[in-house]
Design a protein around this nucleic acid. Structure first.
Length: 364
DNA sequence: AACTCGGGGAT
DNA sequence: ATCCCAGAGTT
């Protein structure tokens, strides 16, 4: 029923639970680094890094990033190639490019000061409705909502919403309901409380309803089996892609790598030269001479929408890859300082090239 | 509205 | 193996 009414719950139902959420959050929040010092820049960077990424895997990247880029000016002053190693392994590299562009916007348009106006901040590259709400509420205290995957789950269970949350009607209801909750004291804490609850209590599977501050009001629980919510849409499986890549060394033993163009998959990341297809033929098309004998190894790497089967061949020669941003031979000792894509990292390890297990360890 | 865009932790 | 995560941009 809630989505069809498209109205937030009445205030007198909302306020006691709002207080319960804030009390629960004050007691049970995780001590995350950006909560120690919630400056606009730190909150912004944390929100970008956390997009579609678990908090636990962000923390290390966040600390290294902030040590090297303590403010928008520091990021605006470097080029993308300097930034990429700090993002390598975190995924979704357009986030890094957009943040870099946005930092330059802040410097040129706002004198280096992050705008506190939601309209202005929301116009920056890579800042969508969620990130705008998060930074504006957490760092500036504006009473604006956030709706992320956690909030969707919490609200759909709380109000027993069985319709697909991706539909426009439910989206409107979600933002309106989250907006009503955020419209009060401590909007940043309230927003974080909803997300924290979704991340630690109202989890996708096996929610801990017994310790939930909303349990008595939860309509999804009252209706039975809150775990069925939110309704999930069936997703397509990844498309299978066969790729051949080459381990080609110079006379000095340096390894030929190519850097992907910024746009597209693994944008800006270094990779072993290769192409779609099976066997040595795709590599010969790159001007490489493939050694006789069996391939050096095989690895698989699954993205959201593609499943790569990578075959590594020993080869000689300098690769000629159409559209590459850069082609260069690197000594093995220098590989750790490069932004290496996931599939290449796996392939190098598979064929015995030592690469540090630690990811995102940018030079400082 | 449907795709693209990563990687990993939890189950 | 599957799910899904402090989403945004493009088509």
């Amino acid at each position: 029923m809630p989505p069809s009414t498209a109205a937030p719950p009445p205030a007198d139902d909302r306020d006691p639970l709002r207080a319960a959420l804030l009390a629960w959050y004050a007691r049970h929040q995780r001590p995350l680094p950006w909560r120690l010092d919630p400056s606009p820049w730190r909150v912004w960077v944390s929100e970008i890094m956390c997009q579609q990424t678990r908090v636990a895997s962000v923390i290390g990247y966040f600390e290294r990033f902030m040590a090297r880029f303590p403010d928008p000016e520091a990021l605006a002053a470097v080029d993308l190639e300097t930034l990429y190693p700090f993002w390598a392994g975190l995924g979704y590299y357009a986030r890094a490019r957009n943040l870099h562009a946005a930092a330059r916007q802040v410097v040129t348009e706002y004198g280096g000061e992050i705008p506190s106006d939601p309209e202005q901040f929301g116009a920056l590259k890579g800042v969508g409705r969620y990130t705008r709400g998060a930074v504006m509420s957490i760092a500036f205290g504006h009473r604006v909502p956030v709706v992320d995957g956690n909030v969707v789950r919490v609200l759909c269970r709380w109000f027993n919403v069985a319709d697909d949350p991706k539909t426009p009607g439910v989206q409107r209801w979600l933002w309106a309901t989250a907006g009503a909750l955020a419209d009060g004291p401590q909007p940043g804490d309230l927003n974080q409380a909803l997300m924290e609850l979704g991340a630690t209590v109202c989890t996708p599977r096996s929610p801990s309803c017994l310790v939930c501050p909303l349990a008595s009001a939860c309509q999804g629980r009252r209706a039975g089996d809150p775990e069925r919510l939110p309704t999930k849409t069936p997703r397509k499986g990844p498309r299978a892609v066969a790729r051949s890549v080459a381990l080609s060394r110079t006379a000095e033993g340096h390894i030929w790598l190519v850097r992907n163009p910024d746009a597209g998959l693994l944008g800006g990341q270094w990779a072993l030269p290769g192409a779609e297809g099976e066997g040595p033929a795709p590599l010969a098309a790159l001007g490489l001479t493939v050694a006789d004998g069996p391939p050096l190894g095989q690895v698989t790497h699954t993205f959201t929408h593609q499943r790569w089967a990578l075959t590594v061949y020993a080869a000689t020669g300098r690769p000629q890859v159409e559209g590459a941003a850069e082609i260069a031979a690197h000594p093995e000792a220098a590989l750790d300082g490069l932004a290496l894509g996931g599939p290449t990292l796996k392939a190098l390890r598979k064929v015995g090239v030592a690469v540090a297990a630690r990811r995102g360890a940018g030079r400082t």
